[in-house]
Amino acid sequence: MDLINATCQTIVMVAISLVGAYVFGIPLGVILVGTRKEGIFPNRFWNAILGWIVNTIRSIPFIILLVALIPVTRFLLGTGIGMAAVILPLIVACVPFVARMVETSLLEIDKGMIDAAVAMGASKLQIFFNIYLPESIPSLVRGAAITCIALIGYTAMAGMVDGGGLGQYAIYKGYYQYQYDQVIYTVIILVVLVEIIQLGFISLAKRLDKKRGNIK
């Protein structure tokens, strides 16, 4: 296992998990906002249940979740080890994280805009698709940077189930083979990755955000 290979494994794990986390996290975040007392489809029961599930999963450290989910992973994928076996726990760990991020972004929307739409006679779905989503996109993109960086941290634990990636590489080379230079290279690559992600998402959010008056 070389450094380039490990880097690629980390990127693949992060990319797939990020997509998976948003596919499930966005609807969950929307339901969390929508079922609030003042939401577009208020339902106190479901809001409490989903809020509790989200908080419970978020309170479990990833390394424990990874191990706890091995039977589920084995049942679904036929194996409890390898990269595929890490992606499922990564998604499970990140969905509640993304859901809360989406919830925060949606709640940032100026209530005045909603008033304007209600006064025009807009339906709840029209309000959702025309105001909530488009108005919160820059904030959602900024949130994606945080999720992505958190995911890199989680992938470091993939080595526990032989999932590969930079975390496993650093432990293998540094802890077992005393090649400390390789650990330093790993750290440098991680720092660069985080910087690229942060800069990339933030500049994308800036380009998308018309609220700041930076676009004609």
């Binding site: 100026d110 005045g112 805009m113 008033d115 304007a116 739409a117 025009m120 006679g121 807009a122 029209q126 025309n130 105001i131 488009p134 108005e135 996109i137 820059p138 998308l208 955000d209 018309k210 609220k211």
Partner: peptide, 22 residues
């Protein structure tokens, strides 16, 4: 409205056509 309540991520044209869409 007092604070205008315009949709900030939409152009002037998209803001004006919003009630037509609704």
């Amino acid at each position: 409205f007092q604070g205008y309540n315009l949709l900030m991520q939409k152009t002037v044209a998209r803001n004006i056509e919003f009630p037509l869409k609704i």
